[in-house]
Simulated scan of single mutants.
Amino acid sequence: MEISSNKQNFFLKNGFVHFENALSITLLKKLQRFSDKLEASALENFHSRQVYNQCCISTDSGVPRLFSYDELLFESPELVIEMLASPMLIEIYKSLVGDGAVPLQLGVVYKYPYPHPHITWHQDAPHSRQYPYLNIGIYLDDALLEDGCLRYVPNTQHKILDIYALSNQYGWDIPDVVQQPAKAGDIIVHDIMVLHSSGAKRSEGARRTLYVEFRPILGITESGKQSKEWAELRKQWMAHVIKAADPSSIPQAWHEFYGEPKYDLSTLVKLIKAKPEPPIPSIHAHKSVVHPNYPIPKDLR
């Protein structure tokens, strides 16, 4: 399995790219069951008034709904490693991130019908752009056109934009906007700085998407946004991913760079959990937008 030059060039030009049928059916089913358990656990904790910092619960609809669950490595390390070591993801790291690729953080977003939250226009994690920095979306459910799927404005990844001015003038329909649907088992990769959003979902049920950020370790250390110790633990995380992957898919230089894991997986998870450091914050409109169709579409007001 290799990523075509057309896909690579599309990503470099537009800042996002879609891969169909990227997960095996077996792995997809495992991840769906995992996300079901996470949601049940989060809601149980919410109703018993337990504070759990990994979870964000929305009550906008009057019914508690899980919006996001972060740090999935802490919940099922073996399944996380299996997923990150799957063939398509390995090819994404090789082709779109390159040498020294490491995972930064991994969470799942649950999207329910309006008035459950939508995602307004934003750019994730502004940085110097000397190294690739990707967000990989792994779809556990279908995301359909006109149903709150991701919206991108192609070729906007190169600099910080005036998001307030753009969204205030155009709402959801910034010039050249592209809606990108996906099916369960697909992957959408986007440059962390491409302008993107996700409007109101209209169909029933949840749409679950796993998001994992990847970056070369040199990009982390040279940015100074996280410590070298934090970055080294991510390198160890990647060493476990490489060990679990098909050996024939891993370049020899990667074996030499990452080496054998220094810690067993259980110990590594404890070390990562004991050293939290905040991610680079995303950029949104600096004040509330006034627009007749944004962020809430006029027919839903």
Rank of each mutant, 00 (worst) to 15 (best):
D141Y: 10
K13N: 11
L23Y: 12
P126K: 09
Q32A: 07
R208A: 03
I242E: 02
P281Q: 06
V212M: 11
K13G: 01
M1Q: 12
Y170F: 15
S198E: 03
D36M: 13
L96F: 05
Q180N: 00
P181K: 03
V194P: 03
H190R: 04
D142F: 14
P103R: 06
K273I: 00
L66F: 07
V194T: 15
F34R: 15
L106N: 13
A42P: 08
P261K: 06
C56L: 15
E2V: 04
L210Q: 02
L271D: 07
A206V: 11
E2A: 08
Q8T: 13
M193L: 07
P154Y: 09
P117M: 06
E222T: 15
S167V: 01
G205L: 00
I92A: 01
Q32S: 08
I217F: 15
K7S: 14
V108Q: 06
K111V: 03
S203T: 14
I57S: 07
P103C: 08
L144H: 13
D147W: 09
Y170V: 02
G98I: 02
A85C: 11
V269Q: 02
S266M: 03
H127C: 12
I250V: 10
E78K: 14
E39Y: 13
N168F: 07
A200C: 10
P261A: 03
L265E: 09
V212E: 05
S61E: 07
Q179A: 10
A42R: 04
V63E: 08
S4T: 15
V289D: 05
I220L: 15
D60F: 06
S249A: 10
P154I: 11
T209A: 10
E204P: 00
C56M: 13
Q236V: 04
V212S: 11
I138H: 11
K7G: 04
Y110V: 05
V269E: 03
Y114I: 02
R65T: 14
H196C: 01
N168E: 14
I272M: 14
I163A: 08
P278F: 13
T267R: 13
P175M: 12
I272L: 13
V109L: 12
P251H: 00
L89R: 09
N6S: 13
V241S: 01
Y164E: 09
S61Y: 09
Q50M: 10
G98P: 00
Q157R: 11
A231N: 06
S198P: 05
G137S: 13
L265K: 10
P276S: 01
E256V: 06
L161T: 02
H158M: 13
N168V: 02
A239T: 05
Y114Q: 04
P115Y: 07
I296Q: 01
F19C: 10
I192E: 02
V290P: 05
Q180L: 10
P297K: 05
A182C: 03
Q236K: 04
K235I: 01
R202D: 00
